[in-house]
Design a protein around this nucleic acid. Sequence first.
DNA 1: CTGAAAGCGCTAACAC
DNA 2: GTGTTAGCGCTTTCAG
Lengths: 343, 343
Amino acid sequence: MRDIATAAGVSQSTVSRVLSGSVSNVSIGAETRVRILDVAARLGYRPNPLARGLRGAATMLLGVIVRDIMDPFFAAAVEAVTTHARRRGYNVVLGQAHGRADEAIALRSVLETRHCDAILVLGDMGDQPRLIEDLLASPMPTVALWQGIQIPGIATVNVDNEAGVRLALDHLASYGHERIALIAGRPLGDIQARRSAFMSFMAERGLSVPESHVVPARNQAASGAAAMRALVDLSDPPTAVLATTDVLAIGGLHAAYEAGWVVPRDLSVIGFDDIPMAAFAIPALTTIRMPVTDMAIRAVDLAVDQAEGGFADGSAPHVLAPTLIVRQSVAKPRSGSRPEPIR
Amino acid sequence: MRDIATAAGVSQSTVSRVLSGSVSNVSIGAETRVRILDVAARLGYRPNPLARGLRGAATMLLGVIVRDIMDPFFAAAVEAVTTHARRRGYNVVLGQAHGRADEAIALRSVLETRHCDAILVLGDMGDQPRLIEDLLASPMPTVALWQGIQIPGIATVNVDNEAGVRLALDHLASYGHERIALIAGRPLGDIQARRSAFMSFMAERGLSVPESHVVPARNQAASGAAAMRALVDLSDPPTAVLATTDVLAIGGLHAAYEAGWVVPRDLSVIGFDDIPMAAFAIPALTTIRMPVTDMAIRAVDLAVDQAEGGFADGSAPHVLAPTLIVRQSVAKPRSGSRPEPIR
DNA sequence: CTGAAAGCGCTAACAC
DNA sequence: GTGTTAGCGCTTTCAG
């Protein structure tokens, strides 16, 4: 910038005024402005965001911390967040927290990331207490999405997991299912909420849930498949399965298929999230749709408003409602205890 | 930092020396160091990366521009890149280029992103000429992945698309398939390469490809499904289908299923990429596996070396080989022109 | 071994 | 309208 100042024969401040589009100040000499713009272009001038930041300017960056970007649900969430952030003039810095092992690093990454204006945390970080602690300690506006729980002091945007589970269970029940199993991911955040909602609603209806009908899994298709294999091998297999995420459900669908079970004739399956692939599962997966876009918008707005306005929204809870998407994977229960082998 | 200097009763420079772990200089008074460290901790000191950056320090940030994060393949790629980047001590800034409409913005984002040490471009940006131009104009180390083509002046890491297509076609041919259709994404980069490889290899074998057997698609399951629907409705439907990506193939599988075609009995399907879901498609998808991890490592190393060492690797082409993953979606051709309706 | 001072690129008072 | 000056937080000569 100094170069362009000398080259244009004006002072640096004038250049700054022109190039940074200072609104408030006095008007700039029409010809001077043109000359400066000209020289700037000729010299291929690029403002240095670091220097701007140092002066206290907003970086227009939103930090996003996501547990696992390979989870299609979170990929969609990142997409939604990115889209709305951009609409608000912000860009996104992605910090991946993959696995708890990297906790310390993820954390560091966040701290180093001080040069963004606000932070969004996607997904349950319940097992990374240091992260949470650190977020709380820092003065940076933070909002947590899909955390499953309220974190005092941090604005959170969640789905109503209980309503979702109730929707799913009601749907299954309306078909006459009583032996319903659960494939559940790590008991944290959203998943934990879904799991306990499942248990209460089953109890509420007087439906018993044998221990073997609640099978734990990591949130990957392979794990969902393994869980389904276990279920299908039981002496008293369920007639319906609720998976806490679509990824798990899709893995389960595959395992059922391999075992020769035809969904939904022999077994009903219902997922949670409505990831893009869900509609293309075989059969198309009935699932609970997450209002991803709305949640992303809400969260970004919260973060941006906090960053710009500085008003401490504190921890007003934002809980949005999921909806039931009926597709092809649910039907009435088979008659026998297990299906006749078809091959 | 000034505060901590006064609080510790030393000068700012001493504090800096201690806190930044200056290697070269003289040793620091043992007691002084401890005192400073102590005060720093007590005051909750956090270095300001912006100020460091201003002084010319590396930001340890890798910019990653990806066309579409919702594409499971690129999600996996981002994961791989992030992992290796972190191993090298770098964090990742994600810039999403979704859709060409945002070209200008994506571009800006990159330029603003000058505060990262190098840039990785994932996926074909052939339709964003301004982006490419800009990358070339800037002095920032850049490496392009899955660009499908060489870009003079930018280091590129690609797969051998032709080898991949040949692998797929050989596999299909070995089962006796001759009427092979192609579901192809946007004719850009990798996809373009795969498409033309398909055409040449078919020609090479003397196999004709009716125009109706090459169906264009956007890279989404829905589009793959639509394409498959078209294929299946043909009066001379193919006995095998090659999709340029697994996402397309999975969509196609679904459409075939809905049409009552049983894969692989009535139709063989083969994909490209080997995304995590591919193994859990129904039936499990035979596909061409991308060496994602290796490519990510190569690219990150290239970028980092360039950023740190400054040696201009220029545009040495890096082309890695894909492999065939045989699963369940390919069998010998059905006998009739079309399958008997099964329902 | 430690302090003083300059400067990275830019902006914002405050003059003229 | 335009120039001067100070300083954001940090590192780094250059002197003590």
